[in-house]
């Protein structure tokens, strides 16, 4: 079954696969995680705020993003962004936004919705009694958040945030639909050029597996270490 396997094609294309493909995959993951977390925190704060307008906006945004397939959002933003750019800078023509820039914005906005839900769940996972106990010893709202709620929420959230980042890392493979050379895109280009689909796709699967498996192993370790005994 594997007798006519061409290992050489993998060996030959390693530099291309990693220096171009994996480099973009990791860049996209990192940028979308960092900015997604920042934006997600803002959205979570909006959602938990007492203003009906702000929380309403946050709820709609999160629900919208979470109901749509990422592939559709990738397409939508890819075609939408030139017009939005045009509107922002008041240009006469749609702005040229490359596929790479477009996916970075897409993933940031998309993941922000998921991260904000993780934040909200983390904050709400802290029992109400804890908030009351904080008030009871005379802390004000900010101090209760700072010393009682957030430290506990953060411990609950951290492993989930890392897990979501692993999911995000896997999801970046979907940029394939815009013909971008991410890791999978690179593998698939080699596969088609050399007619070596079996080798390249199995190799891609193996690489993704090793990375995600190792990462989730460390997340589990982390989870055990920082969990609070109740």
């Amino acid at each position: 079954m594997f007798s006519n396997f061409d290992y050489d094609v993998i060996w030959r294309s390693l530099p291309y696969l990693f220096q171009q493909g994996m480099a973009f995959t990791l860049t996209l993951t990192a940028i979308a995680t960092v900015f997604g977390l920042i934006l997600g925190t803002l959205i979570a704060m909006m959602r938990l705020s007492s203003s009906a307008v702000l929380s309403g906006f946050a709820v709609s945004y999160v629900n919208l993003m979470r109901s749509l397939p990422l592939v559709l959002v990738i397409f939508l933003f890819y075609f939408l962004m030139p017009y939005v750019g045009q509107w922002i800078i008041r240009s006469d023509q749609p702005v040229q936004v490359g596929a790479y820039a477009s996916t970075i914005v897409t993933f940031t906005l998309f993941e922000a919705a998921y991260f904000s839900e993780i934040m909200r769940a983390g904050i709400q996972s802290v029992p109400r009694g804890q908030v009351m106990a904080g008030y009871a010893i005379g802390l004000n709202y900010r101090e209760v958040m700072r010393h009682v709620v957030l430290p506990q929420a953060f411990r609950n959230m951290l492993p989930v945030i890392f897990t979501q980042t692993i999911v995000l890392f896997q999801d970046t493979s979907l940029v394939y639909v815009l013909s971008i050379t991410d890791f999978l895109g690179a593998a698939s280009k080699v596969a088609q050029r050399d007619g070596r689909l079996t080798e390249m796709y199995l190799f891609a699967a193996l690489v993704y597996f090793l990375i995600c498996f190792t990462a989730s192993f460390f997340v589990k370790r982390l989870q055990k270490r920082i969990s609070i005994i109740r």
Partner: peptide
């Protein structure tokens, strides 16, 4: 672990392109 740690797209490609070959 096996099915969770490989992106869906890669798994689709394997079922579509690779499995028939094997």
């Amino acid at each position: 672990e096996m099915f969770r740690n490989i992106p869906l797209l890669v798994q689709l490609f394997i079922w579509f392109f690779v499995v028939p070959e094997l």
